[in-house]
């Protein structure tokens, strides 16, 4: 495996305006590196959904991104409330979002399913009361 380009972002939990900023930076970096548009789209969607999830459900968190020649590895870590039933959370349409969040255009129960759908590897570890770590890999081939 070649050396990675390492990026880290603090995702603020109380700034809905800046939510998506980390995904934007990663998207720009991938474009600059000449990664194919079809892969950039997958990364952008998956990471943006993850970032929004951290903002609306977990009070923010940290995004750790490693870009290799052949893939990108994105780790999203939060210290939010955790997910009691991961299988249920991965079901399309299931959401614990409040009406307030739905008013903002999210909370349709598509976040985690989208993240899984657009990535080549998806792993979710969560402990109630401690937090959630999502690891996603998108291959560039």
């Amino acid at each position: 495996m070649s050396d990675a380009l390492h990026l880290e972002f603090e995702v603020s939990g109380n700034n809905f305006v800046s939510a998506g900023g980390a995904s934007d930076e990663v998207k720009k970096t991938l474009k600059m590196l000449g990664i194919g548009a079809q892969y950039i789209r997958k990364v952008a969607i998956a990471m943006y959904e993850g970032e929004i999830n951290m903002v609306i459900h977990a009070g923010g968190g940290r995004a750790i991104v490693d870009i290799y020649r052949e893939k990108i590895v994105i780790v999203l870590k939060d210290q939010g409330p955790g997910i009691p039933d991961i299988d249920l959370a991965l079901t399309e349409g299931y959401s614990t979002a409040t009406d307030n969040i739905r008013d903002l255009g999210f909370g349709a129960g598509m976040g985690l399913p989208n993240m899984k759908k657009y990535t080549d590897e998806f792993n979710l570890e969560s402990e109630v009361g401690k937090g959630t770590t999502v690891t996603m890999v998108v291959n560039f081939f």
Binding site: F16, V17, A19, G20, I45, Y48, E49, I52, R102, L104, G105, F106, G107, A108, G109, M110, G111, P113, N114, K117
Partner: peptide, 24 residues
Amino acid sequence: DMMSDVLAFVKDQALLISGLCNPQ
């Protein structure tokens, strides 16, 4: 009006019509 739906289903559309009005 649901951005999650846009992210889930939209393919290569160039224009988004929405009644939602926020930075997201």
